Amino acid sequence: MASQGTKRSYEQMETDGERQNATEIRASVGKMIDGIGRFYIQMCTELKLSDYEGRLIQNSLTIERMVLSAFDERRNKYLEEHPSAGKDPKKTGGPIYKRVDRKWMRELVLYDKEEIRRIWRQANNGDDATAGLTHMMIWHSNLNDTTYQRTRALVRTGMDPRMCSLMQGSTLPRRSGAAGAAVKGVGTMVMELIRMIKRGINDRNFWRGENGRKTRSAYERMCNILKGKFQTAAQRAMMDQVRESRNPGNAEIEDLIFLARSALILRGSVAHKSCLPACVYGPAVASGYDFEKEGYSLVGIDPFKLLQNSQVYSLIRPNENPAHKSQLVWMACNSAAFEDLRVLSFIRGTKVSPRGKLSTRGVQIASNENMDAMESSTLELRSRYWAIRTRSGGNTNQQRASAGQISVQPAFSVQRNLPFDKPTIMAAFTGNTEGRTSDMRAEIIRMMEGAKPEEMSFQGRGVFELSDERAANPIVPSFDMSNEGSYFFGDNAEEYDN
């Protein structure tokens, strides 16, 4: 993207840094990872977990959730003011799984939030270390993106479920800051804005008074975040219109849905970061690795190297396929839920299948599930090659597409044709070009129609051997075009429920 120079890199967003050079960025990201790792080690000690239990991804998720809940100030305040039966607002906890007599047992633990905050700050040299908290939120978000298709949420806001490739980060909490905003897809931002506008339509006082002023500035800020994701002048001009509207209503909703559809071809720039579970960072720190000293990046080879040398386990339900569970977590670790499966298959070195073909449910185990038949197995999170994460949407291309997802959002900077089903997408653009945004709409449609099938995206960008740390010898991959490109292809993934 041309304006790259004016933006802070995501590592800076990730670490609240002012302008830093590459070495400083690597050190501050490393410091953040160190903090998460030290916190995780301490929690495993508190909970008396064995090494194996500490490497269980379900335990990692519970521990991450506990610290996120302990620092969720708004919710904590709300819980104190609106006490609900049987919930102690000062405590947080969740299921911890232990191996007892050759069987997995679930144990519900409860801790004072104050105590968890103390352990977290102690692991982070006394700081609140917001960057580390956001990092864990993005890992949870990436896992949700890989596990669930947001059909219901899309339909509720009037969008087409086939636009799911635009929904990265749709389950990120509001408090995820600049680093969170960077990884949100165009569809996620559109959905947040539509929800806001709908509230304004239904509630006369939404934009009024002292609160209304705050609401208005939040609305304009979200519009600017979305505008910054678009790469064409016409899309940005249309966002200006939406932002400046005196009284946002149905016309703005129409414009936003139009823009979301246009992003299936004229893709937005959305950041991709490899955020790993805390149970990967903990053992690495415990083994003596100093992330701050060595430096770390979320968008280069580092996460690949770390996963190459990590042992992570997962509980497996009786009829689940461990290899499929591994694929789910591998995609989440690489922030690749909406990437082209052919690119992923090449990088991973084994075939990556669409969601609907995987015999696996989510990673988390519900409290009512029976533990008797639970097994555990090693997650295979290694890769054959590594590639640089991208934040450009890439230019655009036609490809055989599917009944489910009709476009992709690249996660890796790797040369390819970008699949999208042009006739299906263009069919949504018939007729409606009147109104105050008509010239911009016409211009956007013209650009979409001009998108050429034979153009290559990320020209000359390749993948790298894991021994090639400096990215000196790019390998331009070859793809098996007979395979499906979309992950949520004609899909039956479970729906995400809060």
Rank of each mutant, 00 (worst) to 15 (best):
A2P: 08
A2I: 10
T6C: 11
K7W: 11
Y10M: 10
M13H: 03
E14L: 00
T15C: 03
R19M: 10
Q20D: 09
Q20M: 07
N21G: 00
A22N: 00
A22E: 03
E24N: 00
S28I: 04
M32G: 14
I33F: 02
I36A: 04
Y40A: 06
Y40R: 13
I41D: 04
E46L: 03
E46H: 12
Y52D: 04
R55F: 10
L56A: 01
Q58C: 07
I63R: 03
I63L: 01
S69T: 14
E80S: 05
G86W: 06
D88W: 08
P89Q: 00
K90H: 02
K98A: 05
R99A: 14
V100A: 14
D101S: 00
D112H: 04
R118D: 10
I119P: 06
I119Q: 15
W120A: 02
N125T: 06
N125S: 05
D127R: 00
D128F: 00
T130L: 00
A131S: 15
G132P: 03
L133D: 12
T134L: 07
T134H: 07
M136N: 13
N144E: 11
N144Y: 14
T146K: 03
T147M: 09
R150V: 09
R152S: 03
A153I: 13
V155W: 13
R156Y: 06
G158T: 02
D160G: 06
R162D: 06
C164E: 06
Q168P: 04
S170W: 13
T171W: 10
T171D: 10
L172T: 15
P173T: 12
G180L: 03
A181H: 05
A182R: 05
V186C: 05
G187N: 04
G187S: 04
T188P: 15
L193K: 03
R195F: 10
I201T: 05
W207Y: 15
W207C: 06
R208I: 02
R213Y: 10
K214D: 12
T215Q: 12
A218I: 13
G228K: 09
Q231P: 02
T232W: 10
Q235G: 09
M239A: 00
P248N: 07
A251Q: 10
E252M: 11
D255A: 03
A260T: 14
S262F: 05
R267E: 12
V270D: 05
A271F: 09
H272C: 08
K273T: 07
S274V: 10
D290T: 15
E292W: 07
K293H: 14
K293R: 05
L298A: 13
L298P: 12
I301A: 15
K305P: 02
I316H: 14
N321G: 13
A323Y: 03
A323Q: 12
L328S: 02
L328N: 07
N334K: 03
S335G: 00
S335L: 04
L344R: 06
V352D: 07
V363R: 13
A366V: 15
S367W: 06
M371K: 03
L379W: 12
A387S: 06
G393T: 05
G394L: 10
T396L: 04
N397Q: 02
A401I: 01
Q409M: 14
Q409R: 07
P410G: 00
V414P: 10
Q415I: 12
R416H: 00
N417Q: 02
P419W: 10
F420G: 00
I425Q: 11
A427N: 15
F429Q: 05
G431W: 02
R446A: 01
M447D: 06
S457F: 14
G462T: 07
F464R: 14
E469M: 10
E469G: 13
R470S: 06
A471N: 10
A471K: 13
V476D: 12
S478C: 13
F479H: 04
F479Y: 00
E484H: 08
G485D: 06
Y487D: 06
Y487S: 06
G490H: 11
N498M: 04
